[in-house]
């Protein structure tokens, strides 16, 4: 049984079809990259999986359970975590409190006390290397620190599926390499299926993903192992365009 299954998902906004008849499967512990230009439907797909939008057509199945119409706050405890393209920290709360919120309301919801959540938070804060900023208000962090904090917060939810939205955008190339290594390591150690979505940082994808899904105009264009997907002529078309007169 796949961890997550999307069956013929279609999401429209008025006349605009943001996601058009997309089906895909994600297995437990898989590392997947979703790539596609701006407007190709990646973020909408994330919102359908995390429950921010409900699709007009199709079903979302998580661990064998139909969650198509489940509100977002009931999906997180099942094990769906996500980070945002523009980090969304709870600004006035400290880094430690932010990450503890992840532990408190994620898959451990109802199983851990506030104090235990704070201990779990300390563990993940150390993992992403933010221990020096633990008691700082999250709103005062730099953009990169905020991203790390969001990752710690999402990991503290102990998700089974982690959706990362442009986690590496705006980062220095050497930071990207470190980040990729780190995320991959955590994913493997904790058996989290990680989906990383990028617009065009292929560098990150090559080192990270086992499989790549290419989105184009709301549809799934390619779904194949990384090396195969990146050399697919259709992908080259989407990214570089076809020479004129061809």
């Amino acid at each position: 049984m796949a961890l997550l299954e999307l069956e013929n998902i279609t999401k429209r906004f008025g006349g605009l079809v943001a996601v058009n008849d997309v089906s895909l499967q994600i297995e437990a512990g898989e590392l997947i990259g979703i790539v596609g230009p701006n407007g190709s439907g990646k973020t909408t797909l994330y919102n359908v999986i995390s429950g921010v939008y409900s699709p007009e057509e199709g079903r979302v199945i998580f661990q064998g359970k139909d969650i198509t119409n489940l509100p977002p706050y009931r999906r997180a405890p099942l094990g769906i975590g996500r980070t945002f393209q523009i980090p969304r920290p709870f600004k006035s709360a400290s880094v430690r409190e932010n990450v503890a919120i992840g532990a408190m309301f994620g898959t451990l919801s109802g199983k851990v006390s506030v104090d235990e959540s704070l201990e779990i938070a300390d563990h993940y804060i150390e993992l992403v290397g933010l221990q020096a900023y633990k008691d700082k208000a999250a709103g005062t962090l730099t953009p990169t620190e905020k991203k790390l904090m969001e990752i710690a917060r999402a990991l503290a939810m102990k998700p089974k599926l982690l959706l990362m939205d442009e986690a590496m955008a705006g980062m220095h190339p050497s930071d990207i390499d470190n980040m990729v290594k780190f995320i991959k390591k955590v994913g493997v150690e904790e058996n989290i299926a990680i989906v990383s979505m990028v617009e065009h940082i292929m560098r990150a994808m090559v080192g990270f993903a086992q499989r790549i899904i290419v989105m184009h105009r709301g549809a799934k264009l390619v779904d194949a192992p990384t090396a195969e997907a990146l050399s697919d002529p259709k992908v080259i078309d989407v990214y570089l365009g076809r020479p004129s007169g061809d």
Binding site: P72, Y73, S92, I101, V114
Partner: peptide, 25 residues
């Protein structure tokens, strides 16, 4: 000091993010 306080802080700061984090706002 309890779970309620953390949930309220989260929703006060960013209600949509709070929902996705598993909080029944």
């Amino acid at each position: 000091r309890g779970k309620i306080g953390y949930a309220l802080t989260a929703l006060r700061e960013d209600e949509d993010a709070a929902k996705v984090m598993g909080i029944n706002v």
